[in-house]
Nucleic acid binder design. Structure first.
Lengths: 194, 194
DNA sequence: AATTTTCGTTGATAATCATCAAGATGATGA
DNA sequence: TCATCATCTTGATGATTATCAACGAAAATT
């Protein structure tokens, strides 16, 4: 059950002691989220960080009644509505499961306790935050510099990682176009031989 | 000289001891950057984080020979080509000074030493990274969800903070349009009474 | 199996934005 | 002061993308 997440921690903190690990492990709770169910809804304050032990989730916002996808995350990654989690303000994003998903969750209060008791986890949190910063930086650059077509190409190149089960209308809002336009982008790329 | 940056550290780490602070202060070096000069050029590995003691800088990338502005930072903020600084890879962004600027710099190697000697700075780094993540998240959301006109309005609302001395062609690339189009956005807004 | 939704595609039209070219304005320096 | 250069504006045109509507295919439900 805790093998994946333990490896994840050890990859970031090679010197993590067994005592430190056990202290954290004891705070983890398992949550099963069925396909279509929510991990967090906008308006709620996000009280957990969740390690995806198995499954696949989507981040999205509701704007004028439309779902705008802002990210997709799979097994082995830590997720949260971080802005809400960190600021203790209501989230402006939703997370739902695109597949049946198993999460290992750590609550905000437990995390604060763990920080106090085992300062090594400040290093972990720093590295996770730095990694998230780099990730989102690249997305920001893509949104500012690349055309929707280039962003779609990026998706399918790196995206072999991602289950190809993301509906196109979700990809469309993620790259910043309408579903109709993504359909035309795909058509054009197919004609060019992709 | 070190008053501003000390306040900055104390605001994030209220419990910072004098010993801890002095250790860091002794690593700081002052760098004067004249208007138009570079703090970092793309292709270089960024070896410092810099606290802006006085002045005003711009982040930008060169794309097809054009300067695309990606951010503006003023007094009291920590800057760096973080992606490069953290990954030790060549930077893909430039930083230059829009005004004569005074920086207090901490080198990568000194920072690692400080981390080792005074673990409290892991907390500082964590909070800075978290803050950067929140900041860039908001920019990403703006790029994905808002129209250029809305992004410009955001700029001038929050942007009372920023010196109004940013040339419009820099603002244009920052919000993702051509200078010509920004000019038309401004005209349209003026007619609507802004 | 049949029905109902959901999803992806295609077409026609309109809005948004980029590009190119030409002036106008303002700052900078000889 | 005058000349020069950079910036901002405006106009004309074309490319990109959104919107609305219709259709077909696939998936879920009954």
């Amino acid at each position: 059950m805790y093998q994946n997440i333990k490896s994840f921690y050890r990859s970031i903190l090679p010197k993590l002691t067994e005592e430190e690990w056990v202290a954290l492990e004891e705070c983890l709770t398992v949550k099963q989220v069925k396909k279509g169910e929510f991990v967090i809804k906008q308006g709620e304050i996000c009280n957990h960080v969740s390690f995806i032990n198995k499954g696949f989730v989507r981040f999205f916002m509701l704007v004028d009644g439309k779902e705008i996808s802002t990210g997709f995350m799979m097994d082995g990654q830590y997720i949260s509505a971080y802005e809400s989690f960190l600021t203790r303000q209501p989230s402006n994003e939703n997370i739902d499961a695109l597949q049946n998903t198993e999460l290992l969750q750590l609550s905000y209060t437990d995390m604060q306790r763990i920080y106090e008791a085992y300062p090594v986890y400040h290093i972990f949190a720093r590295k996770v935050a730095e990694h998230l910063f780099i990730q989102i930086s690249q997305r920001t650059t893509a949104l500012q510099l690349l055309s929707p077509e280039q962003r779609y190409q990026n998706m399918i190149e790196k995206g072999s990682l991602l289950p190809q089960q993301i509906p196109q209308y979700m990809l469309a809002s993620y790259i910043g176009v309408t579903p109709e336009h993504l359909s035309r982008i795909r058509k054009k790329m197919a004609q060019k031989g992709y």
